[in-house]
Amino acid sequence: MAILISLLVTLVLVAVPILGVAAGAEYVLGVVLPYLAFLVFVVGFILRVVRWASSPVPFHITLTGGQQRSLSWIKGSKLDNPSTTLGVVGRMALEVLCFRSLFRNVKTELHPEGKLSYRWEKWLWLFGLALHWSLLIILIRHLRFFTEPVPFLVGWLESLDGLFRFGYQAFYITDLLIVLALTFLFLRRVVVARLKYISLSADYFPLFLLGGIATTGILMKYVSKVDIASIKELALGFATFRPVVPEGIGTIFYIHLFLVCVLMAYFPFSKLMHMGGIFLSPTRNLANNSRAVRHVNPWNYPVDVHTYEEYEDEFREKMVAAGIPVEKG
């Protein structure tokens, strides 16, 4: 059901620009919506992060994955249990760039004879990493449309990504990787019963959306050859706030662009915000130094306690009889 709804929504979203182009709404699709979507993305993202940040971190709840730094002769685990800011930066970098925690993943199985096994299972890590790195590289590659002259780094990354060539046609590895990764992540949700059980529409929809964006992008590049020069004109216009809509770009481009707009507008309201959230995750971004440095809770408030005086008042006679010193003899 969740799959069907997500798929249906995606298909409707594909139909919108087709109808739009037919109705001659290229300006809306090519200029108005992109600006709007970009605005929603930026403002929404910032507001969401501000809302997170407006709640304090009252307690120091570092999750430690290795040996603490305690006695000088015991080697602490600097990255899995950082005690310094530098260590935290390292831990976060590993987390964000290499998915360190996901790399720990194993598959737990209970065998009928009663033995538990923990098997190698890095596929989720591998395809997750492939998806995210591909997304990043593809995003950077796209900067070629928004810049003139194209920055060196963009060109360099592009040639690296397109290392394998077929004749004159550059073939981007990331194009293949992102399709493989999306396919894997989708199939995983459908095939593994317990994953299907936990999956919501909100889990399928981004996969379909990204799938639609990747597919239209790939079609444009390798199959239906759109007019790159016109697209660059449009993109440059967008970036320099002098929007233009060149003639004859082709419907498929507008589908691609529209889905990207939907993605941008959807992003701040969805689980995709894990991109920003991970940086603020208190189990990962705090050094494990809570016994060395006091962590302050801004809303710490006084509570009812059972004082020693109350305690002694209740038990004084018994304490005296047992030879325990008391305050009031």
């Binding site: 969401r48 997750g128 593994v192 999956s199 919501l200 689980k271 915000m273 959230g277 991970i278």
Partner: peptide, 8 residues
């Protein structure tokens, strides 16, 4: 807000 239900 940020769980993606990856199931790890």
């Amino acid at each position: 807000d940020i769980c993606v239900r990856c199931g790890a």
